[in-house]
Design a protein around this nucleic acid. Sequence first.
DNA 1: GTGTTCAATATTGGTGCCAATTTCGCAATA
DNA 2: TATTGCGAAATTGGCACCAATATTGAACAC
Lengths: 207, 207
Amino acid sequence: MRKKKSSKDLIDLLTADISAGVFSPGSWLKQIDLQRRYEASRSETRKALETLCNKRIVRYEPNRGYYVHHADDVSTDEVRDIRIMLETSAAEFMVKQVTDEQIEDLYQLAQRFMDQIREHKITEIYETNIAFHTALLATCGNASLMELVSDLRLRIPPAPASQWSSYARIEQSGKEHFAMVDALAEKDADRLKAIIRAHIDQASTEN
Amino acid sequence: MRKKKSSKDLIDLLTADISAGVFSPGSWLKQIDLQRRYEASRSETRKALETLCNKRIVRYEPNRGYYVHHADDVSTDEVRDIRIMLETSAAEFMVKQVTDEQIEDLYQLAQRFMDQIREHKITEIYETNIAFHTALLATCGNASLMELVSDLRLRIPPAPASQWSSYARIEQSGKEHFAMVDALAEKDADRLKAIIRAHIDQASTEN
DNA sequence: GTGTTCAATATTGGTGCCAATTTCGCAATA
DNA sequence: TATTGCGAAATTGGCACCAATATTGAACAC
């Protein structure tokens, strides 16, 4: 149990709510509303908004306030390209440094993803997907990279699991997860790269 | 002329001063000192510190304040690896999209860099170097990428031009600039990648 | 001489208030 | 009916002050 809520918690709560669509793109984040909703002080609220502004999740206009950023097509494409650059480049490090234990964990996560698709556990699927990609990136042992990609993921339009394009597409994503684990186990960097690229490219709103 | 200093100016001033070594790593950035030094309000000061904290240039401890971040070797290596991933990947886009005019501009910047080495214009060299790399990245037409790399560059230990390793090393950097322009002009992505990798790797504190 | 306790000091963090700015609604007019 | 103008309301931004917390230094005990 925590005795007091830290500023990081507020940031995470706000981020989660924006990501979940509680605040839709374009809507104003009024300081009074926020400090009531999260029972935070004014300064904490301002600090959190400033942080989210730096993360490009919200935008700011002087004397008007902060509002949820509505990513345009151009910047969405740019960020997706950056993710492809980072995660395909990371593949080189992954195949070099991955341990058998990590491969096993990744396999478990890929399996859980598939199971949850079959059981239609919509929200869990979303979380498992993120867990898989986080674990995958963790194998290259670069903490700064993991942090950076997490931030970039939030800059792509909110992808609520509820509106995933189609069952077929999700199942395809699940298969790709297994393909990644296979390529990783076989230390085939080029194949891993190709799968990652296709995975991010096609399912840009789903991973 | 601007009639009022914006919050972005304060952030840039602080960043520049930290980068220039006015505030050395580890030293506390007391709010009162800063708001006097830059003639800014308390809230502007807090906002700027929070932004720099997000950019990983300063760190924060509750109830103690903000201090200049002293990057350790591990995170420095991590960030350098990220830069190599991004800038070598960007090479693909560069060779595809670069215009003759941009190549000419890059050549001019590479030349200016060399001239300033000869004239021992220390501070100008540093700025020209950044201008070259910025212009190089600009050729792949991804504004988000440029922004990201600019931020990453600041996360590597302050590289004051005054303590560049050696004349030979700087001159080598200058030659590599020309080599990059050549590879770019010949649309040789692989060669460009190799040069960029070596350039960032060897001269991690100089570019 | 060394270590500890406690008070004085310094700094950050929170709150309430007021000013500046913007937005919104309503009325007046063409 | 559409448009313009004006005033009220809402919101942010800045300031001063107080509370909370951490540091420092001095006195004191051993």
